[in-house]
Design a protein around this nucleic acid. Structure first.
Length: 192
DNA sequence: CATGGGATTGACT
DNA sequence: GTCAATCCCATGC
């Protein structure tokens, strides 16, 4: 994956990331669910403008934005669009691929379907913490790589986002159709 | 300087 | 289905 991939409209990147692989060695997983956030809408952290917190969101594309949610969980985002545009793709769920034993250890004994089926769960399973905020997704410790062959033609559905209180009507959530590893059942359906 | 809310999860009823 | 845990940071006085 290269910088040009992220240097595009956030909705395109969010859809294209489904089926790609997130790796934080030795653990990795296939992205099955994403959400897009953009500074033009109030659900996005960058909506408030450039601050110390949103600095990374307005920075160059292809960088990780990791932040703490509800004081407890770390959530992983991929910054998109040219520098100066505050936008990012939230990685919401993965299908575990490698390092399963370590994931189980970090999460406690659970079903495979529950290891990475939520934005706070997958960061725990992959060992991704706030210290990775601002790290490079192309050369850094956490990387995103292209779709494996069997994911090249994955069907992607668009639906409404989850767990937010503003701009809840935007269909900016993208899911791999039929995946058992989603954080929640799809909201609304369309094509890809 | 004090306050309140949030892109969640998991335990309990 | 309901609810507490927990903390960074934007906002307001």
């Amino acid at each position: 994956m290269n910088t040009a991939f992220y240097d595009r409209p956030v909705l395109e990147v969010a859809r294209d990331l489904v089926g790609c692989v997130v790796t934080h060695s030795p653990t990795s997983g296939v992205i099955v669910e994403t959400e897009a956030y953009h500074d033009s809408e109030p659900a996005c952290h960058a909506f408030v403008g450039l601050t110390a917190r949103t600095r990374v969101l307005f920075g160059p594309p292809g960088v990780a934005y990791v932040y703490r949610s509800y004081g407890i969980h770390a959530l992983l985002n991929a910054v998109t669009e040219p520098e100066g545009s505050g936008s990012a793709v939230l990685i919401r769920a993965l299908e575990p691929l490698t390092g399963l034993a370590l994931m189980h250890e970090r999460r406690g004994l659970e079903r495979i379907e529950a290891l990475c089926s939520g934005p706070g769960k997958l960061t725990q399973a992959l060992g991704i913490g706030l210290e990775l905020n601002g790290s490079d997704l192309i050369r850094g410790p956490v990387r995103i790589s292209e779709r494996p062959p069997q994911w090249r033609s994955v069907d992607v559905s668009a639906g409404t986002r989850v767990g937010i209180s503003k701009a809840i009507e935007l269909p900016w959530r993208f899911c791999a159709v039929g995946s058992r590893f989603l954080s929640q059942p799809p909201g609304r359906v369309s094509v890809a």
